[in-house]
Design a protein around this nucleic acid. Structure first.
Lengths: 289, 289
DNA sequence: TCAATAGTGTCTATTAGACAGTATACC
DNA sequence: GGTATACTGTCTAATAGACACTATTGA
C-alpha cells in the first residue's frame, strides 16, 4: 500500500509524544534436552528437560533467577532483539524459536507498565550456554476441579512447577481458571506463588504447554535432539514431552514417514548397535507460529 | 514473590525515561459466520466467513480499510483495552477471543515504531456490529515451491486474500517463506501487496491460519455458530473452515461426543425437521492460547 | 408427490494398541 | 554367556472413509 500525499504531509507533522507508551521487553524461555547420567555402562541414559535461567544482579528481584530478557531497542526487529539478547547474555546462537505470547498484566513488573513479548527457544545437548544456569524442569498437575453451570462450566487446574539443579531449587504454582458460559469464554492464569522474578514462572509453564501440544501434531520435538539420532532417542524425547510411555513397535511405525535412515550406526554401547536417522526433509507440518 | 528492601528503595528511585519505548496498539481480527441467501425455499443456505473492517477517517492510510484497533491505555489490561475498543468502535460485546500474535516489524507503521498485539475474535450471525463493514473472506493458495537443500529445505507459498462485499473489493497477497537448514528454522511472512492499511492483511491471514489449524483439534468452530444448532449447520461450518467436503455419517460419528442433543427441533424448512444440539459442556480440549 | 434435507447401517481400509519374538553388540 | 537394547511380525481393537439406504417435511 503506497502512502497518499495527505498521509505524507500528516506524517511530517506527526508526533507520537501525546500517547503514553509502555516499556517493552523480550524474554526467552530456553529449553534443552540432556541425558541423565547412568551407573551401568549398558543402560541407556534417560532424558530430561532443562530451562536456562540467569541470576539477576540488580533490582528489581535482585538475586532472583529470571529468564534471559532485555528491553527492546527500537532500531531492531523483535526477533533480532531476542537473538542479540540471548547471544550476549547466555552465549547461545543455534536454536529453534517461535514467538510464544505477549504478557502485559498490569502488575507484572513492579517498576512500571512493562509488556513482554516472550519467545520459546529449543536446543539440544550439543549447544551449551556460556552463561546462566540450567535447571531441570518438572511440572505436575496438583489439583483439578470442574463444575458445570447452566450454560457452561468452570474448570480449575493447579500445577506445581519445580526447577532444580545440584545447588538450587526453585518452585512455583500456577492456577488455571477456565470459565465458559454461552459464547463467553474466559481463561485466566494466575500465579499462586513463585520464587522466580516477575511472572517468569508463568512463561515457563506457558512454553511447556505449547511444547506439549505441538509435540502431538508437529515435528517440534526434533529440535530438542541432535540432528542425527537413534529411534530410541527420539522416542525418549517424545516420552518426556508427552509424559507417557510409548510402545516401541508402534512408535517406529508412526514416525517412519518423518525420519530418514542414514548409513551410520551408534556403536560401542554394550548391546546391538542402532541405526542413526535424521528428520526427513520431505516431511512437513505446516504451522505458522 | 515478595520484594526485598533493596528492591523497594530501588523502585523509589526508578525512572523509566531512559529507555526508548515503542507505541503499542491492539488490533482485532473479528470473524463471523453468516448464511448466504438462497433462491429455493427448500435449499439450505451456504455458510460464509466474514471479517469486520473500518474505513479510516484520518491519516495515515486515510480512507483505507483497517481492523478495529487502538493505542493502548496504560491503565488497562491488554484484553480490556481490546474489549473496550471493539465495543466503542464497532459495538460488539459477545464473542470468543484469544491473543493471536504480536506484530512488530519496523516498517509496519509509517508514523513511528508501533507494536501491535493482535487478537482473534469469533462470533456468529446473531451478533451484529453497529459500526464497520463486514467483508466476505476468501483465501486461496496461488503458488507453492519447495526446494531441498543439503541439510534442509526452502518452502515458498503464496496466498491471495480477497475481501469483498456488495460495494467493495479489497485484495492482498502474502508470501510465506519457510527455510530450514539444520537446527536453524526461519519463517518469514511478507506482504507482496495489499489494499488494506498497515500490515492488517497479514493479521487476517494469520488469524485464518490459526482458525483452520485449531478447527482440527479443538472446538473453536462452535464459536462461529449459534449455541443451538443442527448437525448439518455444524458440518457446514467445519467444511467452510477446513475447506473440504465431509461425509454426513462420518461427521456425525466423530462429533457425537462433542455435542448434546436437546428436545428442540428446527422446523418449517420444506423437508424433514432436524434436531437441535448444543456443545457438550463435558467435552473439553485443553489449550492455553 | 417430490425435492431436499435428516439421519442410520454397514462394509472396507487404515491406524492404533498390545505384545511376543528375533537380532546383535559388548563386557 | 548374559544383559540390555535394536528391531520385526502379527493379532486385535478402534477409528476413518465410502456409500447405500430409510425417514420426514412443506409446498
Amino acid at each position: 500500500m503506497k502512502l497518499s500525499k495527505e498521509d505524507q504531509t500528516f506524517l511530517e507533522l506527526y508526533s507520537d509524544s501525546e500517547y503514553e507508551k509502555p516499556s517493552v521487553t523480550v524474554d526467552s524461555v530456553v529449553f534443552r534436552m540432556v541425558d541423565e547420567k547412568v551407573e551401568n555402562y549398558r543402560k541407556l541414559p534417560e532424558k530430561k528437560l532443562q530451562v536456562l535461567l540467569l541470576k539477576r544482579g540488580w533490582p528489581p528481584f535482585q538475586n532472583c533467577y529470571a529468564l534471559p530478557g532485555t528491553f527492546i531497542d527500537l532500531q531492531f526487529e523483535l526477533s533480532e532483539t531476542m537473538k542479540q539478547c540471548v547471544k550476549n547474555k547466555v552465549g547461545l546462537e543455534n536454536y529453534y524459536y517461535e514467538q510464544l505470547f505477549t504478557f502485559g498484566d498490569k502488575g507484572r513488573d513492579p517498576r512500571t507498565r512493562v509488556l513482554s513479548v516472550s519467545y520459546m527457544l529449543l536446543t539440544n545437548s550439543e549447544a551449551n550456554a556460556t552463561n546462566g544456569e540450567w535447571f531441570d524442569v518438572n511440572i505436575v498437575k496438583s489439583a483439578e476441579q470442574k463444575m458445570l453451570t447452566p450454560d457452561g462450566y468452570t474448570l480449575q487446574q493447579n500445577y506445581v512447577v519445580s526447577l532444580f539443579n545440584n545447588n538450587q531449587r526453585l518452585q512455583g504454582e500456577i492456577e488455571l481458571l477456565h470459565t465458559k458460559s454461552g459464547l463467553q469464554e474466559f481463561k485466566q492464569i494466575r500465579i499462586v506463588h513463585s520464587s522466580l522474578a516477575f511472572d517468569h514462572i508463568k512463561m515457563i509453564f506457558f512454553a511447556h504447554e505449547r511444547l506439549k501440544n505441538k509435540a502431538e501434531y508437529t515435528d517440534i520435538v526434533f529440535n530438542l535432539i541432535p540432528s542425527l539420532f537413534t529411534l530410541t532417542e527420539l522416542k525418549l524425547a517424545y516420552e518426556l514431552i508427552l509424559g507417557e510411555k510409548l510402545l516401541d513397535a508402534n512408535f517406529r511405525r508412526k514416525t517412519a514417514k518423518m525420519v530418514q535412515a542414514t548409513n551410520e550406526f551408534m556403536t560401542g554401547k554394550g548391546h546391538r548397535s542402532s541405526q542413526l536417522f535424521r528428520l526427513n526433509p520431505n516431511w512437513n507440518t505446516s504451522n505458522l507460529d
